[in-house]
Each structure stands twice: as C-alpha cells, then as structure tokens.
Nucleic acid binder design. Structure first.
Lengths: 151, 151
DNA sequence: ATCTCATATTGGGTTATTCCGATATAACGT
DNA sequence: ACGTTATATCGGAATAACCCAATATGAGAT
C-alpha cells in the first residue's frame, strides 16, 4: 500500500556534506508509510518536499559541528572557563588542566582550529585568549541546559 | 632548579569528575618551571593556587560536555534545525535526516538525554520538540563562530 | 487475542577521539 | 655555535562514537 514516492533529490548541491547513500535502502519508503497514515488526506510528495526544505545549508552545519565538537570535552571546556578572566599562556593552562604538556597542547590546537581561541606569541611563550566573547555565551547557554539525570 | 611545589590538592571535593592521576607524572613540575621564568619575582605556590581557582565546578562541566557532545553531530544539528518551525514526529524527522529509522531513533535519544528535546506521545506517534528556545540560541552562536579553513 | 505499524533498543563492525611518551621546532641565553 | 626551555607534533594503543540490520516494545485496529 505504501508505493513509490517522487524523491525530491538534489534540488541544490549544497547538501554535499551528507555522506549517506540513499539509493540502496528503504528508509524513505518506510517513513512515508508512516506519513500517509499520520494525515489521512494529504499529498505525500508535497509533504516530503516541505520536510526537505527544513534542511539547512551543509556548510553551516559543518561549522556548527566543528565548534560543538571542540566544546564537547571536559579539558577544553575547563580551559575556556579559565580564560574568562583573561589570557593565559600554555604553561598556565597546563596547571589549570592538570594534564601532561602534550595533552594540553593538543586540546589547545583543537580549540584554535574551531576558531574558539586565538594565540599571541611573545618570545618562548604562547598566550591563549578567547576569540570572541560569544564563546562565553555559548558556555553559559550550555551550562544552563537542564540535563535529565539517570538515563 | 625547579623544585618542589606545595600542591593545592583537593581543597574541595567538587572536582571529583577529573579522572586524571597526577601522582605518577611530572606535569605540574614542568609547568611550574615555565611559570618561574615567566614572572621573575613571584611566589609560585601562590600563582598555582590562583590558577587552581580558575577551575569550575565539575558537575557544571559535565552538563556542558553532555550538551555540546549532543550538538557535535551533523544529523543531530540537522534535526534541531528542522524543529525550529515546530514539532515533528519521528517519521518526519526520518525524512529530514535521510537516514535509517534506527539511526534516527538513536540520535533523537541522544538529544533527549542531553535535555535538548522533549517528547509527546500521541497514539503510535512520538512528537519531538525543542526543550527550550535557548537551544536555538546555542545553534545560532555555534553557527556564528568563524571557523578558520584549511588546517 | 492477534495483526499491523511507529518507534525504541540491541549487537557488533567501523571509524573517530583521546591520551600521553617520545621527538621535533623555535626562541632565548651564554 | 651550543645548551636550555616552551610549545608543537607524531605514533599508536585505549576508548568512545557512529551506523544500521535485526529484534523488541507498545499502541491501535480487526
């Protein structure tokens, strides 16, 4: 009863970052079955198209996942929190993080690659500062989310 | 030349989420060497204590990393973006995400565990909505960060 | 009760992250 | 030049995250 659906494939090539191969599975078909019974008198194709348009530009999403990925680590969040009161050099951050030098250096690299911190070199020392105060807003919003316990 | 340092160990037990064993490496010693030469007339112990106090409460950081971890995935960001215009049921999100049913269900579980979405059951269908509009602020801030290219 | 369908969970193979010792680089002092 | 010191990068083992087919659960419908 759940037949063919005109797939709205690639109206724009913006979503190239999606690396999923839809040609050999039946995910869309299955989902459309559910759709058909969800609303009784609808044009399924039209609904699918509307849902498709809820997708955002792929490059934006790439940036978002890079940023959130950089924030998804205790050491890195701790480092950023320490930078609230101003810049610190790598050796100071090493004390804050209580971790070996190479570990700290790697985390700082990740933060820099994500655009969250910027560096300033002075002689042998490298000073790290938050790239933008928006980073603190991110940290605050992340801390404000009420994460349900257990699981 | 870089000798012993009074470690300000565990003045409060709040940082119990740090699972690092400092007893068998020399990270602190190394970092303090750098500190000594960074400022020429300082009380190193005092400086270490000050840096130690830049640390935040561990439970807060746990929540932050859980939230950011949930946001650090293309499928999940895409799902949240789709929910900007209102709630959707799982089968609709399946169409948006172009992924198999079990994959979508798992991602939605992750978002729920992080407190980013809430669910409403109506018969056989489960409707997902964003738990708080602050989630959109998070997404927007994450998208606004200027991620340097290459690497 | 039984069947169907929407969604959730499980198992496990694949890939990505994390950690950290070892080594490399780069800037200062002598 | 050389040694020293602060930081960065490499290698690879341990750990976590991801994807998805198969299976389980739970709410109608018959």
């Amino acid at each position: 009863m759940c037949g063919e659906v005109d797939r709205p494939i690639e109206k724009d090539d913006a979503n190239t970052s999606v690396v999923l191969d839809m040609s050999s599975d039946n995910s869309l078909e299955e989902a459309c079955c559910a759709l058909e019974s969800l609303y009784d008198d609808i044009d399924v194709d039209e609904t699918v198209t509307a849902l498709t348009e809820r997708r955002r530009d792929g490059s934006t999403i790439d940036g978002q996942t890079t940023v959130f990925g950089a924030l998804a680590n205790e050491h890195r969040v701790r480092a950023l929190e320490a930078l609230r009161e101003g810049e610190l050099c790598a050796c100071e951050l090493q004390i804050v993080l209580e971790a070996p030098q190479s570990t700290v250096a790697t985390h700082l690299r990740t933060l820099r690659d994500a655009g969250l911190v910027k560096t300033r070199k002075k002689g042998k020392w490298t000073y790290y500062r938050v790239a933008d105060t928006a980073v603190f807003d991110l940290l605050d919003l992340g801390a404000a989310v009420d994460v349900p316990e257990s699981e």
